[in-house]
């Protein structure tokens, strides 16, 4: 178990490092500087600014400085919002993004798994086809199409929910963004869950369980559910990455003051440190999540645990 943890950790560290290297050098390779505004600044002020942000130092020194900071959890100052550090901006958006993201994750897991199980149990019957067609639709319609359609229906036409914005961050504010963010993941999870459930239900050990005369409920809950959930578990990493990526668009569409919105603004404004900060922050989150999921997989599968 400890060996497994060390092994997984050993592959997470180079990923993180690679992420930092890629992000840093990509940013530095950019044509044009962060202070290329409409009116050009006098050279002496520009030099002062560059000095203040250490942009005059050799590249390797800047990189070392950045890595040093990042390891201590300091992502540097923002170029655009000069009164704030990147940390402050991320921390400001984090609670909102976290609420929406976690909400979507939980919703996707429950609805996706439930739909997949229903489809598997009703394999090749009407409810199976219905779930699969819906899932295919969910996979084929991008988030940024679903979101406006949801707004059109629930906010504009029916007037039940706000079209966007973030008043108190309550359920009314969260409902549409969370659903829009969860839908594509629900679709993927339902297909995944259905496939693995069908495979498990066809396995020899389920045949044994049936031959023991166990109640159908026991066969499914005790014998089939856990093995069928394992592939879903290993998809949690990519799912979290998908939700984080999707949140960038969703926050933009619904006008939610989260990290994603800063990210898009920063990307368009060439706010190097902020863009990089968000990439590093979200990247670390995804890598960390993958690591945790791997460990959880080990805990839940007795065969892996034994190794």
């Amino acid at each position: 178990m400890l060996r497994l943890a060390l092994l997984r950790f050993a592959s997470a560290v180079p990923t993180l490092l690679l992420l930092l290297v890629l992000a840093f050098f990509m940013m530095r390779a950019a044509p044009g500087g962060p202070f290329d505004t409409e009116r050009s600044l006098p050279p002496e002020i520009l030099a002062k600014l560059e000095q203040a942000y250490h942009l005059d130092e050799p590249l390797w020194k800047q990189f070392a400085r950045y890595i040093g900071g990042a390891v201590q959890g300091d992502l540097g100052p923002s170029f655009q919002y000069s009164d704030f550090t990147v940390n402050q901006l991320i921390l400001q958006g984090l609670p909102v993004s976290l609420r929406v993201g976690l909400g979507a994750m939980v919703l996707a897991l429950f609805v996706g798994c439930a739909a997949g199980i229903v489809a598997a149990l009703r394999h090749n019957r009407f409810s199976d086809y219905a779930v699969m067609t819906l899932a295919m639709t969910g996979m084929s319609i991008p988030v940024f199409v679903i979101a406006p359609l949801l707004i059109l229906l629930f906010a504009v036409t029916l007037g039940w929910l706000p079209a966007g914005g973030w008043q108190d961050g309550g359920l009314r504010d969260m409902a549409l963004p969370v659903v829009a963010l969860a839908l594509p993941q629900i679709a993927i999870l339902a297909r995944l869950m259905r496939g693995s459930m069908i495979e498990v239900l066809n396995s020899n050990y389920i045949r044994t369980a049936r031959a023991k005369g166990l109640a159908t409920r026991t066969v499914i809950l005790r014998h089939a559910l856990r093995p069928a959930l394992m592939p879903v578990l290993s998809y949690l990493g990519p799912a979290s990455a998908g939700i984080i990526t999707g949140s960038v668009v969703i926050e933009q569409i619904f006008g939610i003051p989260g990290i994603g919105r800063y990210f898009v603004q920063a990307a368009l404004n060439r706010d190097y440190t902020l863009v990089m900060g968000v990439v590093v922050f979200y990247g670390t989150l995804i890598i960390l999540f993958n690591f945790l999921v791997d460990m959880l997989y080990g805990v839940l599968d007795p065969r892996v645990r034994a190794e």
Partner: peptide
């Protein structure tokens, strides 16, 4: 394990 979508966005921003 890299968050590629973000790196692509970064790439587009930069280049």
């Amino acid at each position: 394990a890299l968050p590629f979508m973000f790196l692509v966005i970064l790439l587009m921003v930069v280049f």
